[in-house]
Simulated scan of single mutants.
Amino acid sequence: MRTAEQRAFAEAVDDFCGRHAGTREQRDLLSDNGARAHNHELYAACARLGWLGAGLPEAYGGVGGGMTETVIFAERIAYGLAPLGGFVTTMVAVGPYLTFGGDEQRKTVVSGAVNGAVEAISMSEPGAGSDVAAVRCRAEAVAGGYVINGQKTWCSNAQIADHILLVARTSWTVGERHAGLTMFCVPAGTEGLTVRDIPTMGGRDICDLFFTNCFLPAGAVVGTVDRAWPQLMAGLNSERLILAATMLGRAKRTFDDTLAYVTDRRQFGRPIGSFQALRHRLADLATEIACADLLVYDVVAKVDAEPARQLPREASMAKLKATETAKKVAIEGMQMMGGYGYATEFDMESHLRATIVSTVYGGTSEIQRDIIGHSYGL
């Protein structure tokens, strides 16, 4: 159950998105015709309103809310199609700094996030995706710090981030595949780091990272050396719920766009939504979205009640349900819109692109199902 204040927050975000990104023309101007998912000026406006820190501690300039406030903001900007894609990676990256980072790291990164800085997190490599234990990007201890060599890939928003939270290998332990990984805070522009865009069907917000004799001081370590794996596990609630909330908002927007189309579009002398074939489809989709909403906010409430508790089963369920539902709504929406759903003139084709990839990043649907199955002893 969301409080009156939380509902008012959601309404304020909806109003903001409607005024600044309510038309296709506005969104095209803000996003370079859809090529970029983040607009710094719009993000700065949200920072001035205090919204970026709605779920962050007051000690670092935040409002002091919880996961609920973070999730509400993520959901509503996704519904409003506002190009504020940096929020998701920033909130995911900020978590480890809050829990494991040093005082200076928290002051720099968390306070920066409240004030509009974008953060990124880099785990994947060409040979290490779902299997994080396969990370090979090497961090070699030297006098005063570490030298990083290797390649990372599929890093969202690295090209606009103030810092990249890097997961690299610092040691090898026979029989313990997940041991020997360490988190590092890598400031943008660090010598020896090269960032390159990866063009995708969703735009140019994903990057390859190349580290060539990149020196990081010892103070760049986030948390404990060789302990990145348990640190990552501690943050899964946050990552999966933020991703789930984003796709929940997108699913709701896709449904509403579809409903508007089938209500307005007429064939054989009547609105096409009045035909049973479409009416029943919409009824099923509405039910699935309602289920996803209840699941996501139920898990969020559990996290706010016990912030230190890990909920791998529940968080994976929320991510799985929200992303798969969003993808289904987009596929069905495109089918119901016919050729218009495929045309770039309408938002439906962008809904499809955004939702299909959501079942891949942040842990694929197959990985989420594995986690859920293992939680039952299977």
Results as ranks from 00 to 15, higher is better:
M1L: 15
Q6R: 07
R7M: 08
F9P: 03
D14G: 04
N33T: 08
N33D: 15
G34E: 10
L42S: 06
L42G: 05
A44Y: 11
C46R: 03
G53S: 06
G53K: 09
G53A: 08
A54G: 15
G66T: 01
I72Q: 05
Y79W: 15
G80D: 08
G85L: 02
M91N: 14
Y97V: 07
Y97W: 14
T99R: 15
F100M: 04
G101I: 05
G101Y: 10
E104L: 14
E104V: 05
S111F: 09
S111T: 11
A113K: 13
V114A: 03
A120P: 00
I121S: 01
M123S: 06
A139H: 02
A141H: 11
G144C: 04
G144P: 02
T153W: 12
S156N: 08
S156P: 04
A158N: 15
T173D: 09
L181D: 02
T190D: 09
R196F: 07
D197W: 14
D197A: 14
D205S: 14
I206F: 05
C214I: 04
F215D: 00
V222G: 02
V225A: 09
D226I: 06
W229G: 03
E239V: 04
L241F: 04
L243R: 10
A244P: 07
L248K: 09
R250Q: 08
K252Y: 11
R270V: 05
P271Y: 05
L282C: 05
D284C: 07
A286V: 09
A292G: 00
A292F: 01
D293R: 06
D293W: 12
E306R: 15
Q310V: 05
A315F: 14
M317G: 09
M317V: 11
A318R: 09
L320S: 07
A322I: 01
A330F: 06
T344W: 11
E345Q: 13
L352E: 00
T355Q: 03
I367M: 03
D370R: 07
I372V: 03
Y376L: 10
